[in-house]
Design a protein around this nucleic acid. Structure first.
Lengths: 124, 124
DNA sequence: CGGTATCCGACCGGATACTG
DNA sequence: CAGTATCCGGTCGGATACCG
């Protein structure tokens, strides 16, 4: 599965802090993936078509994109809406759960903007 | 290096949103690693010894732990303070940059606590 | 105590080809 | 258009053994 880090944490080691640690592990786990944060960021403002996302991420292989989208869907962060048309059309959007993740995305964006270009040591 | 996802984003594809996307990619990148979030969470309240962290994470292999700590240090999120004693003693603590990451940790903890136990579909 | 060094297996992202 | 199927190579985490 690799769905949860539960295995490693379900022991006595983390006893009293189990809930907090498990929470973080869970969040990190469902967001692990090369493009997940970017995809969520892109869906943050509005619904997008598959082709839009693909174009936005430019040269991402279709296989990779589909995989990431499927995982996000599986973990309940995005909705997948299929229109039975020809040619087919699929829209992706954040679920309510996904929307609750937006504040995190925003903070990560801020953090990255602030520190992303600093390559020198910066050790307090 | 794998230090940055820059390669994939430095193209025209993301032109106007380059800064935002790059920020998120940067943040995700320096936090990628099986134990990083947990370690930061554990250091959030106070300085910790190597052996403390190791004990907290219980059965993490030393090699893995050291590697994660080195990467966090390299990326300027934690300080490594060595006491020239026998036996040796090493303390880890958050840098100012690392401390700015605390809000994100807190949100991820909240998010995980809220959704971590829901395994049923929950698609909005 | 707090590491290095080394090896290995699993997983994941990426590429390519094909399809409804 | 929006996938699926398949393969491959790199990377990372984990395990084990040794060191200052």
């Amino acid at each position: 599965m690799s769905r949860l880090y539960k295995d490693g944490f379900d022991k006595e080691c983390i006893k009293e802090h189990r809930e907090e640690v498990y929470g973080i592990a869970y969040t990190q786990n469902i967001l692990s993936g090369r493009w997940k944060y970017i995809i969520l960021w892109y869906l943050k403002t509005k619904e997008r078509r598959y082709s839009e996302i693909k174009a936005f991420l430019w040269d991402i292989p279709q296989g990779s994109l589909t995989k990431q989208l499927r995982e996000l869907e599986r973990d309940g962060l995005i909705n997948r809406k299929v229109y039975p048309e020809v040619p087919p059309r699929v829209d992706y959007s954040l679920t309510s759960k996904g929307k609750e993740f937006i504040p995190i995305i925003n903070l990560m964006e801020e953090f990255g903007k602030k520190f992303g270009e600093q390559f020198g040591e910066q050790v307090d």
